[in-house]
Design a protein around this nucleic acid. Sequence first.
RNA 1: GCGCCCGUAGCUCAGUCGGAUAGAGCAUCAGAUUCCUAAUCUGGGGGCCACAGGUUCGAAUCCUGUCGGGCGCACCA
Length: 573
Amino acid sequence: MLFPKFQKHIDDALNSLVRDGVLTDGLDRKNITLEPPRDPSHGDMSTNAAMVLSKAAGMKPRDLAEKIVAKLEALDDVTSADMAGPGFINMRLSDAVLIEELCQIASLGADYGRSNVGSGITVNVEYVSANPTGPMHMGHCRGAVVGDALADLLESIGHKVIREYYVNDAGSQVDTLARSAHLRYLEALGEDIGDIPEGLYPGEYLKPVGEALAQQFGDKYRTAPESEWLLIFRREAVAKMMDMIRRDLALLGIKHDIFSSEADLHDAGKADAAEAELRSRDLVYDGELEKPKGKTVDDWEPVELPLFRSTQFGDDQDRPIKKSDGKWTYFGGDLAYHFQKAQSADELIDIWGADHSGTVKRIKAAVLALTEGKTKFDVKLVQMVHLMRNGVPEKMSKRSGNFVTIADVVEEVGKDVVRFTMLTRKADAQMDFDFAKVMDASRDNPVFYVQYAHARIQSILRKAAEEDISPSDKHLDLLESEDFDLIKLAAQFPRIVESAAAAREPHRVAFYLNDLAAAFHSFYNLGNDRPEKRIIMVNAPEITSARLFLAKNIGQTVKNGLSLMGVEAAEKM
RNA sequence: GCGCCCGUAGCUCAGUCGGAUAGAGCAUCAGAUUCCUAAUCUGGGGGCCACAGGUUCGAAUCCUGUCGGGCGCACCA
C-alpha cells in the first residue's frame, strides 16, 4: 500500500544519510509526517522530515532537505522530488506505483483498508447501556452509532474487539419498572387503573408486558403484597425491556457481543471483592461526604459511608460506593464492572452521553487504582442531539412517556440516513437533527450523495456489460492524469481508516467518503463536454476496460468505507 | 462558585502529530442535460478562525486569561 511504502522510502533515505555521515544515528523520527499536500500543485506526497530533524542534526532545514531530496529522486516510484518553502519535501508519484495501488484495491477487495497495526491488542468498547426501563429513544442514538462504528473501525485495523452493553438492572429504577409493570398487569386483568401515578413509568409500551404477565401468572399476584411479586416482576419486565431494546438496536444495525448484568455482577460478589481489594490498599475508607455545592439539598445530613479516595486521582471529592441503606451505589457497581472488563481486555473504551461528564473522573480514578495503570481506559463523551422538525425543537420527556423513539425515526428516515448523519460530526460537538432537513432535503443529504456515487458506478458497469465490455487491468497504461488523480484519492483510504481508528473518530471516514464521491462525480461529468474523457467509449474498448477497472475499484473503496459506517452501498437509486 | 465540552463564511460543519494561499455542503448569483443516472457537474461573491497575551522557524491547532453557548455538580442512574 502506498503510504507504508513511502514511509519506508523516507526511512531508507534517512538511513542512507546516516551511512553517508550526514545524519547521526538514533534521531527521533516519530514526528515525521507523510501526507498529500493540501495544494495538489505542490505534488502528490509531502514530508516535513527535514524540518523535524534539522535541529537535532545541527543543519538548516533547507540544507538537510536537499540531501534527502537527492536520495528520494533516485527512486523508481518517484518522478520528481523538490524542496519547497521552509524545508518541505514534495514528491510526484510515478504512474507505475499508482497502477500498482489500483491493482491492490482489486486484489484485496473488501479487505482494502484493513490492516493489522492493532493486532495483539484486545479492546473492550462499551456503548448504549441504556437503562432497561423502556424503548430506545433518540437520546441513545448517537452514542449507539458512534460506538458501533468505532468498534468496526478498531476491528478493521486488527484489534480484537469486545462489544459490550452494561444492563443496569440492579438500581431503584428497575423497581419502578416492576411496579409500573404490575399496574399494567392489573389493567390486563380487567381492573380500572385510572391515571398512572406520579413516579411510575406511564409509557404505553408496558401494556403488552402487563398482558404477558397476566397470561403467565393469571391473578396470582393481583392482591399479593409487593414483597411477593417485586423480584419476579422485575426479572420478567427487564427481560421484556431488553428484548425490545435488542429489536431497536437491530433496526439500527447495532451489534453487541456481551450484555453484562449489573445484578449478576453483585450476585457474583464482584463488588465486594473490589471493595476488599481497595480497602486493603487504603483506597476505600469510611467517612462523611461534604455537603453538595452549587445546589441546595433540603434534607441534607452527614452520614458515614464507604468512600473511594478519588481525590487522590484528581476528582473533586471522594465518592461513596454504598448507600446508607447498605446497597451499592451505581458507582460501586460500575467500579467492579470495569475491573471485570479489564480482566479480558488490554484497553477499555466507554461511550457515554455528555450528561455523565461529571462522573468521568471518578471512574477513571477507579480503573487506574484497580488495574494499577495496566489497562488503558478512555471515556468518549458524545454530545447531545437536539431533535428538530423544521427548526422547531421536538419535545422529549421520559416522565410523560412522550419521547421520540429510535424505532420511529428509523421508520421515518431509514437506518442509513440516521447512521450517516450521526457520523458526519465530531462526537464532542453538539448537533441538531432536523427531520424535515434529512427527509425533505434528502437530495442534499450527504448519505445519498455518497451512495449515488456507488450506484452510478454499478450502473456504468451494467451498461458496459450490455456493450460487452468488462473491466480489465490489461491496458492500465492508457490511463490519463484525471484517472490517476482518482487513484491518488482512493489510495488515501487505508491511512484515513488508520488515523480515524487511532484518534477514535469515526466521522473522519464519513468526510473522506464525501470527498471521494465528489471526486468521482466530477470525474464522471468530465465526459459531458469532452467525450474522450468518458468512461464508456464503445469505439475504444481498451481504454474503456481500463476506466471500468478504475471505476469498479473506486466503487469498492466507497463500499468499504460505507461498510465501516454500517451503511449500505446502493446498487441502484 | 467548580468541573467537562464547544466557539471557524449568512446557516450547518470539516480542518490529521503545530505546516505552505483556512476548506466543503446549504443559501445566493451565473452557467452545463440530442451524451455512461442532472440525486450530478462548472464558475463567482462571501473570513479579525470569539477576544487578548504567550510558546517557535511556523499557531485555527499547544499554554494562560477574558467573553459567549451547552452539559453536569445526590447516597439518583
